[in-house]
Nucleic acid binder design. Structure first.
Lengths: 189, 189
DNA sequence: GAGTTATTTCAATAATTATTGAACATACTG
DNA sequence: CAGTATGTTCAATAATTATTGAAATAACTC
């Protein structure tokens, strides 16, 4: 089967971007097609529409499943596996962030913690540990913030994002006139 | 020159993670070493300490400069180029987000806009465009939010992050009792 | 300007990663 | 059970990316 020029362009773009996103062209194309498809597609559909090998599609789908980016579906009176992407783009984004965090951030956080436990053997080590501590604390603050935000319902998350830095304005105000919970008065800027 | 075991571990970890972060081992190691170094290092230092080739270090530094992740420095009475990473880990993170956005998100946003301008040729196309529009709007909301947040001073950003979802609690409260600027009453959840 | 030092470039090669397609495995069907 | 449909694995190969090191370039020094 033949893709429309519109879908074709979308699929090719995702294939090309794949390498920048840390996935390969095949996986990018499969995901793109599933994302815009009107109905769940099976492996043969993907082979047909994308011109990829049978094995490649199988491996690509396996990878997408490991990322929790596609869902396996079964259609009545068809025993082939069909695949879809979730409808909710916000759910997709949460998954993406979650998985990237797991693969790209958590291992570093663990390594940093290990290295910060070691006794420094020199001035150089002490300085290195101070830098690692700064990095660790920053990553930890970000991931804690994310874990917190991540629990919000989509509606409220969108609301929060739409508000943007107007929240910071409010903070500024509060900072000028109120006493913080820790008992420390915020510095007026 | 020889790296201490502590720094060695850190450097090797960044080298290994490099591939997951879309940079190569060489670049990861160079960055890691510059990040923890007590003083600016020149290319020879890096060749010595990391055991890389002269050319590799030159190319690695060029890439890091294109990411704005290292700064070129000149020391008095030494004409060699020396390099450092910025001291402020928050500044580093801003750079990182900025650059990744530029490389990984902006091209897709452009493509989506182009494809959304096209007249759909079929029901399939119309559905595909609806999906692309959802993706586009989400990315745009996120990037707009980021552009907004990004202007904050570090101190206030940290404050905002520390607050986390407590802000959402406040929103929930407001949503229950207040009328939104648009004149629409928020639904009580 | 001849020599020296610092840096970049780039062709060759090494290493890694992606992709195919045929063989294998599994599970239905009559 | 033989035949068929579906899905996976994996060795071979293609394609891409990383890395080296020698040659070229540039920029100083005496």
């Amino acid at each position: 089967m033949q893709l429309s020029p519109l879908v074709q362009s979308f699929v090719l773009h995702f294939g090309e971007m794949g390498s920048r996103w840390g996935i390969n062209r095949t996986v990018g194309q499969i995901y793109a097609l599933l994302f815009v498809a009107e109905r769940p597609l099976n492996a043969d559909d993907l082979v047909d529409m994308l011109g990829l090998s049978r094995g490649g599609v199988s491996m690509g789908l396996k990878e997408l499943q490991s990322w929790n980016l596609v869902q396996l579906r079964h259609l009545p009176s068809d025993r082939r596996d069909h695949f879809t992407t979730p409808d909710d783009v916000w759910a997709i984004m949460r998954t993406l962030v979650e998985e990237r965090k797991k693969r790209e951030i958590d291992p570093t956080l663990t390594t940093l913690r290990d290295l910060l436990m070691a006794r420094p053997q020199s001035d150089g080590d002490a300085h290195a540990q101070a830098r690692m501590a700064a990095m660790h604390d920053q990553i930890e603050l970000l991931t804690t913030w994310y874990a917190d935000i991540q629990k919000l319902e989509t509606e409220r998350l969108v609301q929060l994002l739409s508000l943007g830095s107007r929240i910071a304005k409010a903070l500024e105000f509060k900072d000028k006139f109120l006493v913080l919970p820790g008992g420390k008065k915020g510095a007026a800027s």
